[in-house]
């Protein structure tokens, strides 16, 4: 029989611990596939943020360091400055990147660090149990905004990729989603493009991925995927936000 699909070499043979319907598993696979296809496995170093994917080192079969919460971009900076020939990427959630790691991410982008950020936006703190994130939508109910996010008290959803796009050092930013097969294919292309920008030393690259969290959204998987289309993308429109020629 002809084998038409198999586990990417950059993924270890370990079952994911993620909840049913979670987007992390899909994104892990996409990143691993891109690394395989671009033949980067022996050059890649991953700087992991803290969140549900803090143990992604159990899955990615590349050299991996676990950074302190929010500091993945700073750790990646240190690695890349020592080993400019390697491909260095971070894998972070919205809380890690756009709340506690705001300064580290913004300044790494502004310096044009030659690193790639895989940014999982699920509008909630997943690992700690569904608290409000900087990216939570107006009116979104979380365990720390039980009445729904009130912008007068809790501010607005932070469109961090748009903020990063303003900076001179950022080279490529695209927002994608992993809620249906077409979007998943686009997400993979975006990840490959981001690595290209790093390879060509064009600057800081980010792929923001709208990713379902059925558990903390209190929805079924199908409802979650629909919610991304109908609600989330209205606030976080998909597409290329910035692309320098490289």
């Amino acid at each position: 029989m002809k084998k038409i699909n198999s586990r990417p070499a950059s993924l270890k043979e370990a079952p994911f611990h993620y909840c049913p319907g979670c987007g992390h598993s899909i994104v892990h696979r996409l990143v691993a596939e891109v690394i395989d296809e671009m033949k980067l496995r022996e050059k890649s170093i991953c700087s992991l943020g803290v969140g549900c994917a803090v143990v992604a080192y159990k899955y990615f079969d590349v050299d991996t360091v676990e950074a302190p919460h929010g500091r993945a971009a700073a750790v990646a900076t240190g690695i890349k400055r020592v080993r400019p020939e390697n491909i260095v990427f971070t894998y972070q959630g919205d809380g890690d990147l756009a709340a506690i790691g705001t300064a580290e991410t913004l300044h790494a982008a502004n310096r044009g660090e030659l690193i790639t950020v895989i940014f999982i936006n699920n509008a909630v703190y997943g690992m700690t149990g569904g608290q409000m994130a900087p990216t939570s939508l107006v009116g979104q109910k979380t365990t720390t905004s039980p009445a729904g996010r009130n912008p007068l008290k809790e501010g607005y959803p932070l469109k961090f990729s748009e903020v990063l796009a303003l900076l001179g050092g950022s080279s490529y930013l695209e927002r994608v989603a992993v809620n249906n097969p077409a979007n998943i294919r686009k997400a993979k292309k975006a990840i490959a493009k981001a690595f290209q920008h790093q390879k060509k030393k064009s600057g800081f690259s980010v792929v923001e991925i709208l990713s379902p969290c059925p558990t903390n959204w209190r929805m079924s998987s199908v409802e979650s995927c629909r919610w991304i289309d109908e609600v989330m993308t209205k606030v976080y429109p998909l597409g290329v936000i910035k692309e320098k020629k490289c």
């Binding site: 170093i45 950074a67 302190p68 700073a74 750790v75 240190g78 400055r81 020592v82 300064a103 580290e104």
Partner: peptide
């Protein structure tokens, strides 16, 4: 040689962490 003025003490120590991970004396 690399000298980098970080945006904060926190960023600086984590860059040091990264450099150490990569095997350098920093």
């Amino acid at each position: 040689g690399v000298f980098l003025q970080a945006e904060s003490e926190i960023a600086a120590i984590n860059m040091l962490l990264g450099a150490s991970v990569a095997g350098a004396r920093a």
